[in-house]
Amino acid sequence: MLERLQELYDEAAKKVDDAVTLQQLNDVRVAYLGKKGPITELMKGMGSLSADERPKVGQKANEVRESLTKKIEEKEAVLEKEELNNKLKNEQIDVTLPGRPVPKGARHPLTSVVETIEDVFIGMGFTVAEGPEVETDYYNFESLNLPKHHPARDMQDTFFITSDLLLRTQTSPVQTRSMEKHRGQGPVKIICPGKVYRRDEDDATHSHQFMQIEGLVVDEGIRMSDLKGIFATFVKQYFGEDRDIRLRPSFFPFTEPSAELDISCAMCNGEGCRTCKHTGWIEVLGAGMVHPNVLEMGGFDPEKYTGFAFGMGVERFAMLKYGIDDIRHFYTNDARFLRQFARE
């Protein structure tokens, strides 16, 4: 019987070796190791064996089963791997086909500029203040040292709603509103972005609606040199390390002394080009030391407190940054314009 077992093993082993599919392999398993298989059948005749032979045959039968099982498992692994490889081979795709898109919308360039500037000033300890777009004459003009009939009111042609209500012509009214909230106690350090309105015909460089960012610092001992320092820091962060600044005297009713701030032209590095009208400098904002009347109307003691304020045009910053040549693009909401800023 030992020989028969060996024969059966050899026979089955050959069939395992010959199997090329998992099905054939399974057939071999069922045929030889199943309950009706020849090994089981053979073992049924164990009763006729002597007590001497019986353990030997039993041991042999177990060896054959184990070896065969192991051999089938090994072969199975090989066949499975082959089958998977074949399957994967059929699953090959064209990796150059376009992927399933994940949408990306664009931030409006004005929002981009505002948020970037906000972040620079937040980094310097400022908070962001807000105020209404429909303002009273008091906040928009009078509290900013522009009494009725002041000639400087002509600098800004105003959309009036009533004799006392108007669309704010500047974000400066937020200066007074913020100072009032501080109840005469410094320091005040705010910037205020927002929409403003003036009676201008819309063209490439004018818009009846545009955005400004106002800034205000009020505390004891604030100096004009501090204004320069804050701006030097801001300009380097926003426009780049190699930009220079210069101040030119100017006039705003709510600041004294007043200044325009220029930065060296990025296009030509101050050499002079079309962008800077051959001056080497680009005007970017107006600023100055807060006028004592404005401090007083905001509830701050001008004998004790000083401050500086500044205002900049957001569209101008965006136009400089991206090279946009027509202010109307910001308000047309053309997808071909907006989409480009999705990469920002």
Binding site: V128, D219, K228
Partner: peptide, 24 residues
């Protein structure tokens, strides 16, 4: 200031106490 020259005004930073900068 303007006849002395704005350019000759030094560049400093405020001496005031630091304030936390943040969004609401």
């Amino acid at each position: 200031a303007r006849l002395y020259g704005y350019d000759r005004i030094p560049v400093t930073l405020p001496n005031s106490a630091t304030t936390p900068g943040k969004l609401s």
